[in-house]
Design a protein around this nucleic acid. Structure first.
Lengths: 371, 371
DNA sequence: CCTGGCAGACCCGGCTGGTGAGTGCCAGCC
DNA sequence: GGCTGGCACTCACCAGCCGGGTCTGCCAGG
């Protein structure tokens, strides 16, 4: 009794190998064959459970799925599905609920998610259309995602490493303090206080500005630190100190800080969901505050151009094991990613359509903005 | 039985009139006199309940508070305190817990909060010390607040209306699109995409830059929109369109956007707290996402230079009625505010000390940064 | 005015029995 | 051989009940 389900659980815990066809539903691959009837029953159970939130019994399956057999037959099939690890019962004499593997199978079998319906597409277009700049656009994207799915939305700004600097500016804020401004061609602005050496004159600053303008503007962001180091070495001695201060300020601004740009929305939906216990809730919220981890997780989940689904235990991060993640890459000069986070019991079909549609429209509006 | 407590509840719901001495503890004012023993008993109940989380009975009060009387006497006093509305019992034959009014009284009677202990002060100094710019400083402030109190921290950046513009820059991102950069002397940077009229040349942009540099740089932020309008009117016709685009972009960037800069930290602590039910939790999280409301609430609660406490029903915002807010104003060129949000059952003495200490040190480090 | 004592209220945990949903199994039917 | 109806069984759930423990309110006496 305890052993037979082992191979299946094993498969579930190793999603990466078959990652490419995971969300496409094209190749059933190593998954055990299921006859048509089992597939329909599983689908009925998932759909019903997602909709009602209660374990679904053989009787309800018969009512819902229009296969012309009796409840007893369905029971036999359900017993087999349980043996295969796709469904389980919370306790004896309760209906069945899908396991993570069951959801996985269900998602894989989704032929391909239908287009999002018109009204929703329009809503997205409307909300994204009035964005004033890229940052605003991403914030709105996050907002529209969480509104449409009623789940937690995540949007990660594209890394600026591969973009180019449009403007490098050094503003004097107060004696001894400057503000280094770096503007990338995505419209992203980073800033960093610079401690200027004592005795730096306004004329010195002007010369530094000129040097920066000539040698740094237009360079790829990830090349800038090296360029700055060279500039420091070659600089006339009176500018060296200032340039060194600039270089040491620019490094971190362009490296780490830059990665953590994450927009999160709809956190309240987590608290409203009965599926999460107090402890899970707390951990998930903590995770949502750790922007760096979040960015990594999301980036890892968005290799392909299709939406990717990570269900429960498929997530590598411990605290995410009680939840599912649906994420997709988008392109805005370089790659960014967006997605939603919610209970494993979510409406995958609709969520997939929504994530896909939002990503598409985001790209459209981005090109609108940058032209 | 139901009526006698009415007048007290009324007082609680009208904190504003006596707002000035609310948190000072200087004037008992209209509050009913309490003899020394009642005060000590109330204090014992609040302290014990905050520490243990369980209703406290007469026996425990005797053990904890070293007044040399019997439990029976304490019971009589407690009965009186209940009559006055300061404490209540969750059910018959349970111990007492403080009401919002009880907490209020307790807070008012706190002579004045002691200095925060050394180690904690040092921790604050250490964490704030390594801030790289003002925005970073405020983020760190939020982080340290939530770490020390294990509550939700809130930090609102000072409004930039009264600060001056250090730099106005118009960057050309792509043909037809510019990015307007506004840097205030607080180090705050706002940006906004500008749709440039077709056929705008680089030379035009240069001229616009010059005009902006001459007339806008150094002006108070709230004066800028008016200045821009004048510039548009007086501009040579070939620049008028560009300037108009800039003016229409600058307005909103300087107005609304600016107010919503709120740093929130430690939200996970809400979920861990048993005091909040699912529904409250969800509402509080939603509130934390509405940055505008949040900013208003916090600004309203920080009139004086002392920390202000809003306990449960004293909060005007419905969703906050299940929580307490401890907030204080800080000055960084203009006013900002910071504070924490948690269950009414919080350690007010420690929280008050912490909020005060953090606000103080924030101001120190700010002057460090801007000198 | 304080105190010890005592009755009463009530939460809580455990136990019990009834109900209902859903299962597993089996014998019989097509 | 697969499907079906029927039936016994298993629990979760609910309500009621009981005993133990706690804390209160009250009272009579110091």
């Amino acid at each position: 009794m305890p052993e037979p389900s082992e191979p299946v659980r094993l498969r579930v815990e190793l999603p990466p190998p078959s990652a490419s066809d995971e969300s496409s539903g094209a190749g059933p691959g190593a998954a055990p064959e299921l006859d048509e009837r089992k597939v329909r029953i599983l689908r009925a159970i998932v759909t019903e459970y997602v909709a009602r939130g209660e374990p679904v019994g053989s009787k309800r399956v018969v009512e819902v799925s229009e296969l012309g057999v009796s409840a007893a037959t369905v029971r036999n099939e359900m017993s087999a599905l349980e043996e295969l690890g796709y469904i389980t019962q919370p306790h004896t004499s309760a209906g069945r609920i899908p396991t993570d593997a069951g959801y996985r199978r269900f998602v894989d079998d989704l032929a391909d998610d239908p287009e999002l319906d018109g009204p929703r597409r329009e809503l997205i277009a409307e909300l994204l259309g009035s964005a004033s700049d890229v940052e605003d656009l991403l914030a709105r994207t996050s907002s529209v995602l969480s509104q449409l799915t009623r789940l937690v939305s995540l949007v990660i700004a594209p890394a600026i490493a591969a973009s180019r600097l449009r403007l490098v500016e050094l503003v004097s804020l107060a004696p001894g303090t400057g503000l280094l401004l770096l503007v990338a061609d995505t419209g992203r602005v980073d800033k960093r206080l610079v401690e200027l050496p004592a005795g730096t004159s306004e004329a010195d600053l002007d010369r530094v500005r000129t040097v920066l303008g000539e040698h740094v503007r237009g360079r790829r962001v990830d090349a800038v630190p090296a360029v700055l180091r060279t500039l420091v070495e070659e600089a006339p001695s009176e500018l060296r100190e200032v340039l060194a201060a600039v270089a040491s300020a620019a490094g971190p601004a362009l490296a780490e800080d830059t990665v953590h740009h994450v927009f999160v929305g709809g956190q309240a939906s987590l608290a409203g969901d009965e599926a999460f216990e107090r402890q899970h809730l707390s951990r998930l919220l903590r995770l949502l505050e750790e922007r760096a981890t979040l960015a990594r997780v999301l980036a890892d989940s968005t290799a392909a151009d299709e939406p990717t689904v990570r269900i429960g235990h498929e997530n590598e991060v411990e605290d995410l094991r009680s939840a599912s993640l649906v994420a997709q890459r988008y392109r805005l000069i370089t790659d960014g990613s967006l997605g939603v986070l919610g209970p494993t019991r979510m409406d995958y079909a609709t969520v997939l359509s929504t994530v896909r549609a939002v990503a598409e429209q985001l790209e459209h509006h981005v090109t609108d903005l940058s032209r």
